[in-house]
Design a protein around this nucleic acid. Sequence first.
RNA 1: GCGCCAUUAGCUCAAUUGGCAGAGUACUUGACUCUUAAUCAAGGUGUUGAAGGUUCGAUUCCUUCAUGGCGCACCA
Length: 494
Amino acid sequence: MTEDVNLLILQRKDKLKELYDKGINPFPHKFKGKCKSVDINEEFKSLNNGEEVDKKVSFAGRMISRRVMGKVSFSHLKDGWGKVQIYVGKNDIGEENYLFYKKMDIGDFVGVEGKVFKTRTGEISIHVEKMILLSKSLRILPEKWHGLKDTEIRYRQRYVDLIMNDKVKEIFIIRSRIIKIIRQFLDKKEFLEVETPMMQSIVGGAAAQPFITHHNALSMDLFLRVAPELYLKRLIVGGIERVYELNKNFRNEGISTRHNPEFTMLEIYQSYSDYNEMMEICEEMIVGISKEIFGKLEIEYKGNKIDLTPPWKRKGFFELLQENTGIDFSEKTDIADKSQIMQIADKLKVKYDTNTKSHKILDHIFDTFVVPKLVQPVFITDYPKCLSPLAKSKENNPEIVERFELFIGNFELANAYSELNDPVEQRKRMTEQMKAKQKGDQEAQMLDEDYIRALEYGMPPCGGLGIGIDRLVMLLTGSNSIREVILFPQMKKE
RNA sequence: GCGCCAUUAGCUCAAUUGGCAGAGUACUUGACUCUUAAUCAAGGUGUUGAAGGUUCGAUUCCUUCAUGGCGCACCA
């Protein structure tokens, strides 16, 4: 990035020099006794118009507006919670200080001290007695009433976005609250929060391409994790009965309105439970979040009214396929039989690559015919085994696994299963994955010998659940793009 | 990776059929003692994303590239 040479910036740099020449420090070290804007606006809200109290307050913030009317002026100072109007009178602070105030720029940080009053028009304001420049701003803020709209600048310079668009901060406040509520919820249920490696020598836990990095001293390549799953289940083996991790995963895949290369995932594992119990936990948690944050269970997303009132519907994967395609997907359909699946895809006019594996074509049919209808919360259960190498098969049908995905507002929000704890079966499935990988399937998982060794020591029956936190925040904040809920989304170099 | 669209002043946006690049805001100066998109008066503001081409003349048409948005693909 090159240095911006703009007339307005040069003008401010001149002002900065002028300040130094006058012996004024444009970047003082601190400001004592600052109140919060919300506290000021709350404490004095019962004042009558025109009434002034005898109590002085200190306040500081970024000057975001100025209205000069001769010998008196008004400005708004914005702090971390809101804004407060200040009233600056030439007769109150003296001619020299008043001139200094008029020479300050929109964007400068300012500290003030004075009594609080309410203007004739009813706005709580500080009647300034003392004023100090706390930090000089050298760049011009975007326009005050159209604000900043350019998405590129909004994401690249999120600091400007935050200054100009109050709604952006609201999203990240909600995001923080959601995460806090989740931790409280799980802590109350005696889940232990842990941190497992983000740098792994074997990729596992999800079908995804990893980022590769290199450790110099060990002279070995490492992968950024695509999921913490296999480590968390090692902890289940180790006797940590209930465990969760809420942190980032990294996947080397395309970027879209629903995908960012690094994203936040919650994974929960509970011993002696299964995917049915995970549905209950998942439902209880999301319902609880909505109640606590919005006080209700009806939300709106992309123009759709969504009702989160439990219990949420549960429907089988094949049941939904059948309902929405009219094709009989009963047990006689062999999903491993590619020609059969291809025939169905042709009939439904679903395009596919002939190199694509049969279960991927099936997944594609599901995405095309079923997902667009999944607005209200629904747990989709009982997936084909080939899609889920870490999930346990159903007792009565080895080709179907105990797994669910939660869909709300047309996208997948959560994924869970009864964890496969049979080390012999797990080795078999991982070996199959390895074979697929050797054949060129870049997303196939690796054979993790240590993980199987752990299972050989014995893992109790266990339910596991993963929730995409970014997507949950999208849903609950009405955001159309994942970039709206990630402070610094991935961008190409400027 | 593919397709469509966008890129003009710090910001938000105009510019007729290819004919002098324009407004608001911000900024500077002046007037103004309760404004809040303050108001009024005056003033400067540009590599039209980059490079090339067509043309007497390109913001406008063509090609390539860059970045972004959306969709698809990849992917949960």
